[in-house]
Each structure stands twice: as structure tokens, then as C-alpha cells.
Amino acid sequence: MQRFLPTFLLVIALIAAWQLLHLAIGAGALTSPWMTLTHLISMMGTVELWANVGETAKAFAYAMSLALVGGIVLGVLLGVNRLAGAVAEPILLNLYAIPKVTLYPLVLLCFGLGLSSKVAFGVMHGMIPILLFTMNAIRQMRPVYLRTAGTLRLTPVQSLFHVLLPAILPEIVAGVRLGFALTLLGVLIGEMFASQRGLGYMAVNAMGLGDIPTIMAVALLLTVIAVTCNSLMLMLDKKLQHR
């Protein structure tokens, strides 16, 4: 734990900066860290918050599963077939760089208001990074692994599950880490525009009402969840690199 002390001090410094900013611009513009925390705790006593958390979690679970399966399957296919990969890569990078939020009217027209739009938004954001990481991991995999699989007379299915996927697992975890963050972002954006439920909707609703304490509380909650999940995946990442 000793080595996390400097990081901890840095976080304290950031919270202090938040407090100073609050003092500089006033409580109406930015609630203090303590006020935000107490507001969040009081919100946690309400059914409303948990219903919204549940909605977001549900949409996120669907979107993440789709992004994960789609990203890995397509990534493996495009990684194994070099020509297809070379053809697709610039297109995928381009899609990654598009501000996808502007496409929301289209998504809304295709999927309508509600869960499926949110899921579609999440998949749109999260699948491409997982796909790109998987594809590049396979391209950069040492060829000797597949040659070994060949000399041990493995079937293609055995090679896939016992050589290919274990070999690229660390890169898949790195891709999933990025994909996780972007899927969550996508789902939240979907909720902000295409839904009447979920944490994204809560935030956008509070924006409309000028309810800064609620915005800050939701933002704090999301930050804590996102950073926790990210840290867990980072730890898994480190563990896989060490072997």
C-alpha cells in the first residue's frame, strides 16, 4: 500500500482544488466536495436513484456483452485474415474518430426511444476499441505459437481456444478496459437524449432544472464506479503481464 500513498496525496490535492474552486465561484455554481458527498448519501436513501442505477446497469450489461462478443469475434476474424484487416482498419479508425453523438437522431429513428437505443449507443462507442485491440493483438502475436499448434496437430478450434485466445488475453483485457469506459459513456449519452430513465437522464434532467447538487452527486457516483472498475481491470492487466 506504501506505493499508493503519493497517488492518495494527489487525490487529496485534487479535492482541495475542487474546494478552492467552489469557494471562488460560489455554491450556486459548484457545490463543495463535502456538500456533494452528503447530497449523494441522501440521494442513496431514495428509491428513485436506485431505480435509475438499475436502468443504467441493465442497459450497460446488454451493451457491454454485445460490444465484447462482437468486438472479439470480429477482431479475431479481421486479425486472422490479413487482407480483410488491412481493408477494414482505416474505416474502423475513422468510425472511432466520429463524434457519434451527432448520429443520435439516426439511432433514435432506427431504434426508437428506450432501452434498445441506449444499448445501440453503448455498442457504437465500445465495440470498435475492443475490435481494434483484438485484431492488432492477433497480428502482432508471435507466429511460432501457431506453428507450434500446427506441429502438435491441433484442430483449428483447439488452436483458437487453447493458443490464440490465451496468447492475446492481455491485449483483450486492455481493449475491454477502454471499451468498458466508452460503452458506459455511450449508454449515458443514449440516456441523456433517447430515454426517460437512468443516470444519464437524471443528469440531463438536473441540467434542465439547474440543479447543480444533483448533477455533481451523479457525476461523483459515476466517477467512483468508473474509476473502481477501471482499477480492477488494471490490476487484472498487471497480473496477466507478469506471468
Binding site: A206, M207, V218, A219, C229
Partner: peptide, 11 residues
């Protein structure tokens, strides 16, 4: 990049 920055827009 895990933090959905968009949430902070109003601030």
C-alpha cells in the same frame, strides 16, 4: 478516460 466527462458539462 474511464470517467464520462460529458456529465461535467453543466459545471
Amino acid at each position: 478516460y474511464a470517467v464520462p466527462t460529458f456529465i461535467f458539462y453543466p459545471v
